[in-house]
Every structure is written in C-alpha cells, then in structure tokens.
Amino acid sequence: MAAFNLSPSAPSTFILAGISGLEAAHMWISIPFSVFYIVCLLGNCMVLFVVGKEQTLHKPMYLLLCMLALTDIATSTSVVPKALCIFWSNLRGITVGGCLTQMFFLHAVSVMQSAILVTMAFDRYIAICKPLRYTTILTNARIAKLGLLGLIRTVVFVLPLPLLLSRQPFCANHIIPHTYCEHMAVAKMSCGDITVNRTYGLVVTFIVLGLDLWLVVFSYSLITRAILRISSKKAHRKALNTCTAHICVMLMSCTFFLFSTVTHRFGQGIAPHVHIILANLHFLVPPMLNPIIYGVKTKELRDKVGKYTCRR
C-alpha cells in the first residue's frame, strides 16, 4: 500500500470497538463466529482439494467454483481472526496501515466475488442456451483470462478507496465502532470533507456491483426463456437443476450485501449492534454455506467429495 499522507496529529493506530452495546456478550458471540469460520475453511478447502485431485472436474464450472472458494476463504479470513482477538483477548488496536490494508482486501474480495458470480451466470447461459458450443466457447484458458480480467478490474476500482482515505486528516477520536475496518466507518472519523470518499464508495457499490447484478439478471432472463421453450419435462427439470445452486448462492450473497449496505448508510434509526451483526453475517454466512450448497446441488462434486470423506 502507498505511503499514508496523514497529518502529524493523526493517530498511529485505530481502536476497533467490537460489537458496540454487546461487549459483555463478546465471549458468547465468539462461539458462532468460530464455528462458522471453521466450517467455511473445511468446506472450501474440501472443494479445492477434490477439484484439484480429480481430473474429471477440471472443467470451467469447477474452476469457477474453486475461484469462488478462494474468495470465500479470503473473505472470512480478513474478518474473523481480528474479531476473535477482540472477543477473546480484548486486542482492539490496529495500525492505520493495517486498517486500510484490511479495508482494501475486504472490498476487493467482494468485487472479485461479484465478477466470479457473473462469470458463473454466463457459464450457465452457455451450457443451457448454446450446449453444442459450450466446449469451444468456455475453455479452461478462457476462464483463467476472465478471472485475470476480474482481478484487474477489482484492483482498479477498489484501490482508490484506501488511497483516498490515506489523504484525509483524522480527528482525535480514533475508535471504530466495528469489528473490522469498513470504508464508511473509517471515513466518518475524518475531520475533512469526505464527499469524494462517500461518492466514490457509492459509485463502486451501485455501478460496479449493480452492473454485475444486472448482467446476472439478464443472463437468467435468457436462460428462463430457453428453459420455457423446452418441451420435455425431464430436460426441463435437468436444465433447472443446473442453475439451482448458482441462484441460491446469488440470492444469499445479494440479500446479505444489500441488507448490510443499506442499513449502514441509511438506517440511522437502527441500533448500532444490529448494523455490526448484519455486516459480519455478510462476511460469515455466505462463505460458510456456498460450498455446502454446491456440494448438495451438484451431483458430480457430491460424488467425488463422498469418495474422499467416506473411505474406510
């Protein structure tokens, strides 16, 4: 990260307050946090292991699933370890550089995951609407290029967030009412004008992620039209089943993200601990459930996982 242009009076560290209003319950709250994190690591590492070991799974769909698993691990790892340090040991301090770095990775992973979900929707569109051309349109090399393009887009759009904040003067109050360094929570501690920061954050949220959501909806409108034209009930059901897992993951991710974003920016009447819990659930629940959803809904993956977990 670039050198931080902070004023001489700016704090060298920030203090993460944890879940404000529920400090007495931090130890109890750490239990579900730990369970969710362990399940997330086990599930996503299992997906990576099985796909890596099985040559028959070296296909675009499963390579995308591995990318999603990596972003899920990165998402929860960016939040949970520091949160557990707060809950267990009351280690609330974080350097300004560490805070802005954490912020970059958190938002970068969200944007990258959004790009992966769009690519997965495109994958399902090709599989259902152009099945005879699937292997020529979506090759493993092309998926890798799309992944690299998504990574470049992520860095270009997310890097300005911490860079803009690094140029802000911070006030004497350096307590962040959160378990991690969220962009607007840090921006609100600045003594300067944060109009640019606020505007750019909204642009990234509603232009980049909004465009991704529109592309997913557009893909599924084409998929739905193609499925409705299928006369065979068996083929109709099979086509629907190929999309079920992705639809579930999309709905879950979008629901938690929109709840967290809208309540944080516009829900002034909502208790602070509700804001924080919703924000943490966005980084905990989808990464934990994504591998479970795909494991249950994708027969080929489920069979291969069973091959390794049910050995005698």
Score class of each variant (00 low, 15 high):
residue 66 C to D: 05
residue 103 M to E: 13
residue 76 S to R: 02
residue 98 G to N: 06
residue 110 S to D: 05
residue 156 V to R: 11
residue 99 C to H: 01
residue 59 K to N: 09
residue 173 N to Y: 05
residue 174 H to W: 00
residue 129 C to T: 10
residue 151 L to G: 10
residue 109 V to C: 06
residue 55 Q to V: 12
residue 150 G to T: 07
residue 136 T to G: 12
residue 131 P to Y: 05
residue 141 A to C: 10
residue 143 I to R: 02
residue 94 I to Q: 13
residue 154 T to Q: 04
residue 142 R to W: 15
residue 144 A to L: 15
residue 109 V to E: 01
residue 52 G to I: 07
residue 156 V to T: 14
residue 89 S to E: 09
residue 61 M to G: 12
residue 55 Q to T: 15
residue 162 P to D: 12
residue 80 V to T: 14
residue 67 M to A: 13
residue 102 Q to W: 03
residue 82 K to F: 09
residue 107 H to W: 05
residue 117 L to E: 09
residue 71 T to Q: 09
residue 133 R to I: 06
residue 119 T to Y: 04
residue 128 I to D: 01
residue 92 R to K: 13
residue 174 H to C: 06
residue 54 E to T: 02
residue 132 L to S: 15
residue 51 V to A: 01
residue 60 P to S: 12
residue 163 L to Y: 11
residue 154 T to R: 02
residue 161 L to H: 10
residue 93 G to V: 05
residue 131 P to V: 09
residue 60 P to C: 12
residue 166 S to I: 03
residue 74 A to R: 01
residue 170 F to M: 04
residue 112 M to W: 00
residue 89 S to Y: 14
residue 54 E to V: 04
residue 133 R to C: 12
residue 89 S to Q: 09
residue 82 K to S: 09
residue 117 L to S: 11
residue 135 T to L: 10
residue 72 D to A: 15
residue 141 A to E: 14
residue 124 R to N: 08
residue 61 M to P: 09
residue 140 N to G: 14
residue 85 C to H: 10
residue 81 P to D: 02
residue 169 P to W: 01
residue 77 T to L: 11
residue 150 G to C: 08
residue 133 R to D: 15
residue 140 N to H: 11
residue 111 V to L: 13
residue 66 C to E: 10
residue 49 F to W: 11
residue 83 A to T: 14
residue 169 P to E: 06
residue 84 L to W: 00
residue 99 C to D: 01
residue 153 R to V: 13
residue 153 R to C: 15
residue 54 E to N: 05
residue 46 M to F: 00
residue 48 L to W: 09
residue 149 L to R: 11
residue 167 R to A: 13
residue 150 G to Q: 03
residue 127 A to V: 05
residue 54 E to A: 04
residue 78 S to P: 12
residue 118 V to C: 11
residue 64 L to V: 03
residue 98 G to Q: 04
residue 108 A to F: 06
residue 100 L to Y: 12
